[in-house]
Design a protein around this nucleic acid. Structure first.
Lengths: 289, 289
DNA sequence: AGTATAATAATAACGAATGTTTATCATGTT
DNA sequence: AACATGATAAACATTCGTTATTATTATACT
């Protein structure tokens, strides 16, 4: 019961000769002869009729030929799939991303990756940290971007450990000209809180420092916050990544005690990633150009 | 590259456990574990993720699963075909027959055969000796009925070596009461010649005996001949088999020097016949009951 | 027509490769 | 702690595929 024997049988019939089939397949005549004999013995059937001018199908052989050929074809297709996977010549790559990564990093990365591996289809699933964690667990994505450390026990890669949390102010704010924004002053102005999913890093910052700002609004939309700040409704804190290209009249200031968001990649197992995904990880270096 | 390994992989995934798959397939846990490892090594891919609570697909494994499963399914179908062929539980039996066999023998044979092997589909190809020979050569039929000896070098089985050639006369013929019809008298009456294909046994009879009848008609239709004889248009010679059930008012007489038609079965190789056909040959004994 | 030659497939014997098991280990889960 | 999971090493069993040979038949050449 082996695919080699099937191929030997098929080829012998197609070339009408065991000897020719052996040459084509790189076996000896004896080898192919034995393979077919073994099939016949194993199945208790006569598959081919031998003559001194070659071989041809018996009635039973004829009945099985198509089905055996079909199996060989499917095997050929499988081999092609495998080759493609190894060459990154095909495949689907699913990645979990959150909005700032999708907006500011992925365009650069994907432009280069797609250029080198045009046949890899990429599917981006946009969500918050919690959703992305779920997708990784369930295998809905090959890997995902997360804020590190992640509560789940994933394998992780740190990519951008120093995504500074910046205070954003309207242009005419009293502290618009200070060098670094003093932590304590956060309590003195209305505050607009960015809150996405459970992993609200900014809430944690306040917990750790014991600061209690006057939270007037909470929202999950980065751009809504910037717009509100621009209009003088309050101040806020956003990761620097989000502020890469600011379309608003606002000012971003460092805090006097710096806080960072650590952005990384998480997956169930780096070892088990498909080749196309491993390659993708190498392209993360191009995120800013 | 073997189907056992494919099955091991598929089953492990379907049961979510290598150990369970091993039990189901009748291997040891170690055996199945190694099979999958060998596939992964051979393909340079990671197919499954192992854990202490079982196994599940990696991304690459997922991409190949369906195709591998498809191959296993096709293999299953093949196995079924083979089993059916061995049990005569399915299959197509093609038989070349000439008209008198089809009319007088096959109904009895087929009734019994079909009763014992209801799932074998039988295809009867009706033709003359020459056509049947061609069909056997080309493999269009598994075997065929022929008059023996056959000019082709087939393997043959004699079934009815003594199909007497009988003179047929109208009821009111002058020799209607004779015991055996004298050869020489054949020249004295108009003769209607049965001539089918090239192997006209009756023409050969005349050649061998040097008798030259007055041939008024030639036709290939047995019943047309009987009808013409009945209407006094002449006399003829027909094999006894054709006369089994005579629907005409005619008389059949033996010749004073007896001639026989030898009816048999011919095939390329009895050894290579499908089981269903071999079985059929055993049922030839039932041709007259 | 007869003979030599070439081509075909089968067979026996053998070594290499592969398949499969037993026994054991390592690691999580309950 | 007991159990269940999978991996590993070593031994054994089977299969695979080869070389060398035989047997048969078609083909070519006297």
């Amino acid at each position: 019961m082996s695919l080699q024997k099937y191929q030997a049988f098929i080829t012998s019939i197609e070339y009408g000769s065991i000897t020719k089939a052996a040459n084509v397949l790189g076996y000896t005549q004896s080898g192919v002869s034995r393979m077919i004999l073994e099939l016949e013995k194993e199945w208790n059937l006569s598959l081919i009729k031998r003559s001194k001018s070659g071989v041809f199908l018996t009635s039973d052989g004829h009945k099985l030929f198509d089905q055996i050929k079909r199996i060989c074809n499917e095997q050929q297709i499988l081999k092609q799939y495998i080759e493609d996977l190894n060459d990154c010549q095909s495949g689907l790559l699913r990645i979990g991303v959150f909005s700032s990564v999708a907006t500011h990093w992925l365009p650069n990365i994907m432009k280069r990756y797609k250029n080198d591996f045009p046949n890899i289809q990429i599917e981006l699933l946009l969500g918050d940290y919690t959703e992305i964690e779920e997708w990784i667990l369930e295998g809905r994505v090959d890997f995902g971007f997360l804020r590190l450390p992640s509560p789940q026990k994933f394998e992780t890669l740190s990519i951008e450990p120093n995504d500074r949390l910046m205070v954003i102010l309207p242009k005419d704010h009293p502290l618009a000209d200070c060098e670094k924004f003093p932590m304590q002053k956060l309590e003195e102005y209305p505050f607009i809180l960015l809150e996405k999913g459970v992993n609200a890093e900014i809430s944690r910052l306040f917990e750790q420092t014991g600061i209690h700002p006057q939270i007037n609004f909470k929202t999950w939309d980065d751009y809504a916050i910037m717009s509100m700040v621009e209009n003088g409704l309050g101040i806020s804190i956003l990761p620097e990544l989000i502020l890469s290209r600011i379309p608003y009249q606002i000012i971003a200031k460092e805090l006097d005690t710096p806080f960072y968001r650590n952005i990384g990649i998480a997956m169930r197992s780096q070892e088990n990633l498909p080749k196309s995904a491993k390659k993708f990880l190498e392209y993360l270096a191009y995120r800013n150009c």
